[in-house]
Design a binder for these strands. Structure first.
Lengths: 116, 116
DNA sequence: TCCCGTAGTGCAGTAAATGCGAACTAATGA
DNA sequence: TCATTAGTTCGCATTTACTGCACTACGGGA
């Protein structure tokens, strides 16, 4: 098994971030990771996100988030500790995640309250 | 030829915007459109972006930008008048394009001045 | 009006990315 | 040592993207 690769903060690219977050599953994962307190395992999301996502697919999604620099993953025993690298990204691109996540929450709000 | 489709401001989705701008060519096109004064034709970018992009490819990129709601296209005689829908997006997702485009300009700046 | 040039679109083949089941690795504990 | 749990990797099927070529649409002569 190849070791986990995390880009250094300076190497994080806007393109990779936008691509990673343009997938609804990855966006949902990242959003949860961000406001979770403490690291979260991968499988937590297989069940948390309504539909049952196969673990091979989940694994790919985490790899994309990791290689974009959005998420830090570390093996802890048998499972993985995933945390948001929010602070790093904020240093790299101030205000970016603020704006994206606020747009995301806004859109989520609209969806849960369909137009009356 | 099918008519050009533009989403209404309310139907613009974050996902589509992030996807559209996660491609370097589309990002470059959108950035130029935004600070151009007045509408720009499609072919303007075939040459403007250093490498010669085939026009069928350009046409597809414009379609993605258009369907994401980022760009308004209108036929004017033989050519196309493309304009940024920045104001619409700002109303839909306040601060989003501000943050993304500022991150983009920052990253561009770094690339043109490689680390000393 | 007919023909030509220019701008962009649609199509079809191919190339690249994604999704997912199945087999695998790695760590833990009985 | 064997079973269990958490993730990864591989390989194949499906989807999506790129691009050359033929096409449409419009405008301007002659």
């Amino acid at each position: 098994m190849r070791p986990l690769t995390h880009p250094s903060t300076d190497d994080v690219s806007l393109e990779a971030i936008l691509h990673a977050l343009s997938d609804p599953v990855r966006m949902a994962i990242y959003a949860e990771l961000e406001h979770a307190d403490g690291p979260q395992s991968c499988t937590r999301f297989a069940t948390a996100l309504e539909r049952g996502i196969p673990k091979s697919t989940l694994s790919q999604h985490f790899r994309v988030l990791r290689e974009a620099g959005l998420v830090h993953s570390e093996r802890q025993g048998v499972e993985m500790r995933n945390t948001s690298r929010r602070a790093d990204i904020d240093r790299r691109f101030p205000g970016l995640l603020d704006a994206i996540m606020s747009a995301y929450r806004q859109q989520m709000g609209e969806r849960s309250t369909p137009a009356s």
